[in-house]
Design a protein around this nucleic acid. Structure first.
Lengths: 148, 148
DNA sequence: CTAGAACCCGGAGCCGACTCCAGGGTCAAG
DNA sequence: CTTGACCCTGGAGTCGGCTCCGGGTTCTAG
């Protein structure tokens, strides 16, 4: 069977697409438990560690923060399914993402409007002056109300 | 005329919705030129400084980074309209935003799928195991391929 | 003239998630 | 046993954009 043979930290890292430093970092911040060590103080891991790191990666892919992932892991460690506490977490991340999408869509629209009018209108009179977002009207090469 | 009477750093900050610390910070990083000083070494500003900070705020509103804004200001300082160099900058920011929107939309879809299936399926067997993104099929409470 | 608000400066701290470093020690293949 | 790849630690650095601090100085209204 493919049991036993313990993994070094870089074996583990390689299997999970991380770097050894990152694994040590996860240990420091409490995502990974302290592993057993060789007599020479080198970390040795088993497949549970691989599983745990994959859980972390999966949760990260879902846009969760290490802070939240730590909480889910704590639940998981009790032997319970982390789904129950995960759902509100996911819902609130969705809300955050919606807010960010909204912000970016508005921003994008502003940028496009700005970029489109740039080559033509605003530039007749190369004078140092205010250069404004597109929702501020420009009169005679100058911005009316650039109070933001 | 509303000329002359020079502004202290907090006057300037108040007029532009910033804090004095922020203005000093902008000076440190090269966005604002060194202003003149009183004999006691206090900064004194004029309306050009207000204009400049408004330009900075406007460009920030468009999602430009201080680094880029500094470049635009450098052009503006030559007396030229910063539009010419601004356009490619804006276009590349738009591309970045598109990439980010894309990422967030995928992420959102994954989160929703995950959150929707949480209360039901995945949880029949509260065993510590892998908990995976929704595009990885789950068989008998376990994930087939959770290699990211 | 005096009180108290505002200013000065350099540097540190914050957020998140790493990443890298130096200066050692250890492991395993040959 | 040697060699070279790997590992250890604690701490610092990175990115961006501020924000705050302490200890000292200056400005200004009354």
């Amino acid at each position: 069977m493919t049991e036993a043979r313990p993994l070094t930290i870089s074996d583990l890292a390689a299997r999970t697409g991380l770097r050894p430093d990152t694994v040590r970092y996860y240990e420091r911040v409490g995502l990974m438990p302290e592993p057993r060590r060789t007599s020479g103080d080198h970390r040795r891991y088993d497949d549970l560690a691989v599983d745990r790191l994959q859980f972390i990666r999966g949760a990260q892919r879902l846009g969760l923060r290490l802070h939240d992932i730590r909480d889910l892991l704590a639940v998981r460690d009790t032997g319970e399914c982390p789904c129950e506490p995960a759902e509100p977490l996911l819902r609130s991340r969705i809300a955050e993402i919606d807010a960010e999408l909204d912000r970016l869509q508005h921003l994008r629209a502003d940028l496009v409007a700005m970029a489109d009018q740039l080559p033509s209108a605003t530039c007749p009179d190369p004078v140092p002056g205010t250069w404004c977002p597109p929702d501020h009207r420009v009169t005679e090469g100058r911005c009316d109300a650039c109070s933001i």
